[in-house]
């Protein structure tokens, strides 16, 4: 593979991977708190449509981003309420929100005059630098040639990693996801910690969705994000619930999305459908391998994931 093919593939990988980075990180944070959120797909979609709509109306990208994050967070509050306060099935609640979010996003996209469908974005995220260092070989486009949200994603990943492993709040978060009873006994407010982090996860999912509608596919379609939300759920496992690995996994996924094209230029033909299966197959293998035996402790899910917590009377 010559250098330019590599650069093109890598550049596209980062671009395609960025929304997944946000969504996967959001889901990691939520799951680290012990809550399983299967509504990521729905939250990404409402984020995408909200971001698009806000930017369409105001011409302001920042407002679009904020709208997207709020939309994702609002939807996640419903999930938080069902899962944490009502303590009903997190699985069903998440699926319900995905359905609702999917319908809502389509609905918003098609109502109003003019309908958003088919409209091009008024403003999109463009690369910040188009000349100068951005022209340097390899490093130029790959490091300096991206739009603002890509850099934001790098910052957020770094911040999340530091937060998780080097701050007191991050420790508290991890404890709540592993053993809420012990965290409770140590004086931690389990419910509050869970609510906050579920909402952060929802906001990040919304942001990921907005990247699709404001940078990658700069017009509104009915199916703007594909299966991105579900892929994020899979990547959380592959990333062993760690932010930096999530970044890597998302970029690998982005590269896989480009692979079809890349393979063609190399003269190899691999069916797109089979390539599309890869993240899911890997997630299953990872799930089986990582969650049994000793490895599960180090690389597996937070121990209390998906289990509602209620303080028992001693």
């Amino acid at each position: 593979m010559n250098e330019s093919t590599f650069v093109l593939t890598a550049f596209a990988a980062i671009g395609l991977g960025t929304p997944i980075v946000f969504a996967t990180l959001g889901e990691i944070i939520t799951e680290r708190a012990g809550v399983l959120n299967l509504g990521v797909q729905g939250m990404m979609l409402v984020g995408a449509v909200s971001g698009f709509w806000a930017t369409f109306k105001t011409g302001n990208l920042l407002l679009g981003v904020v709208a997207a994050m709020i939309a994702g967070a609002v939807l996640s509050v419903i999930h938080a309420f069902s899962s944490i306060t009502l303590r009903v099935s997190q699985i069903v609640s998440g699926i319900a929100l995905t359905l609702f979010g999917t319908g809502l996003a389509n609905f918003i996209g098609r109502t109003g005059t003019p309908a958003l469908v088919g409209q091009p974005s008024r403003v999109t995220f463009e690369p910040l630098l188009t000349s100068g260092i951005a022209d340097w070989p390899v490093v130029g486009p790959l490091v300096f040639g991206h739009d603002a949200l890509v850099y934001v994603s790098w910052l957020v990943i770094a911040a999340a990693s530091y937060y998780l492993f080097h701050t007191k709040m991050g420790l508290t978060l991890r404890a709540v996801g592993e053993d809420p009873a012990s965290a409770d006994a140590a004086g931690v407010e389990v419910a509050r910690v869970r609510y906050v982090h579920v909402m952060v996860g929802g906001a990040l999912a919304g942001l990921g969705g907005a990247y699709f509608s404001l940078a990658l596919v700069p017009s509104w379609q009915d199916d703007p994000i594909g299966a991105a939300g579900w892929i994020a759920i899979a990547l959380v496992i592959l990333a062993s619930w760690r932010p930096w690995r999530a970044l890597l996994a998302a970029y690998l996924f982005g590269a896989a999305g480009r692979l079809n094209f890349t393979f063609q230029t190399l003269g190899v033909s691999v069916p797109a459908n089979l390539l599309a299966m890869i993240p899911f197959i890997l997630a299953i293998i990872a799930m089986i391998v990582l969650t049994s035996g000793k490895r599960a402790r180090l690389l597996g899910a937070p121990a209390a994931l998906g289990i509602p917590y209620a303080r028992e009377q001693r």
Partner: peptide
């Protein structure tokens, strides 16, 4: 009331 997956040091710090 210890969190099994965290280290001893982390359990000391919790809360």
């Amino acid at each position: 009331r210890l969190v099994p997956n965290l280290t001893v040091a982390e359990n000391l710090a919790l809360g």
